[in-house]
Design a protein around this nucleic acid. Structure first.
Lengths: 137, 137
DNA sequence: AAAATAATTGCAACAAAGTTGCAATTATGG
DNA sequence: CCATAATTGCAACTTTGTTGCAATTATTTT
């Protein structure tokens, strides 16, 4: 159920080398990954552009979500919740460690609700916590 | 008190054209600005590098804070609270409108506290709400 | 007020992140 | 296994941001 192939099947995506490989990487990683991290792992196997396009496909299908970071390099992480095409509902907090730089999904830490001023309508909320992770103290 | 010159004085920054001009732009803007927005306004008056360096100086002094966004273009906004060199404490929510694209500081909407899992230590928290702003409904 | 010093700017060059068009390749359904 | 549709790789480009260095400008000293 959580292997690359079934994820592709479930989302009606064709079974290609790059998609399988990149999904495997996510499945085996604890942390969110930047495009560059993926490239380092896959090496010369896939073109940069292919990696970008694969990630975009995964986002569109709700397989992966992005995390806005201060360093302007988008991080991608698997959606553990049931996100579907066009509709993400990852409502967990993201943690970025200042020491090791790793970005982690705190899957069980939900984003608290906020009351916005009149007239503001939220469609998606991100909460990014910077600090020091358990491994780095 | 809220004119460009006093802000520079208060922060022991020398009074230069670019600093004054860029501060004026922030003082007159309701929204957070990307580097590119500033360049469009200042035109050829200042070099790109000068704008970047000026913004960095303002961040260091606690005059301006950055907002992580999904589109990988850092937004900058005036600190309304008393941020000082090296220590920002902007704890308000940021709103990004999906229609007009504007990024707004909801200065009076404070970020609610979250309880992190054991071992995680927060130093800074960002909350970015995407949705539709009052002007765009 | 002018000279000396220190800070700031502009230029050129570079690096990283991401995008687009198009031809070649690969996957899939019949 | 063939046809069609989807995916990939390549080349070129854009945007965002950085660095070193010489020239300029602001501030301090006298």
């Amino acid at each position: 159920m959580t292997d690359a192939l079934s994820i592709l099947k479930k989302n009606h995506l064709s079974n290609t080398d790059s998609r399988r490989a990149i999904l495997e990487i996510f499945l085996q990683s604890e942390n969110a990954l930047a495009h560059n991290d993926i490239e380092k792992i896959t090496g010369e196997r896939f073109d940069r552009v292919t990696v970008y396009r694969t990630l975009q496909t995964f986002i569109d299908k709700g397989i992966v979500h992005t995390i806005p970071t201060a360093d302007n390099a988008t991080r991608y992480a698997l959606c553990r919740e049931n996100c579907t095409g066009g509709h993400h509902h990852d409502d967990h907090v993201h943690f970025i460690c200042e020491v090791c730089g790793r970005t982690t999904c705190l899957d069980h830490t939900h984003i608290p609700s906020v009351k916005l001023p009149k007239g503001y309508d939220a469609t998606q909320i991100n909460m990014i916590v910077n600090g020091i992770c358990p491994d780095c103290r």
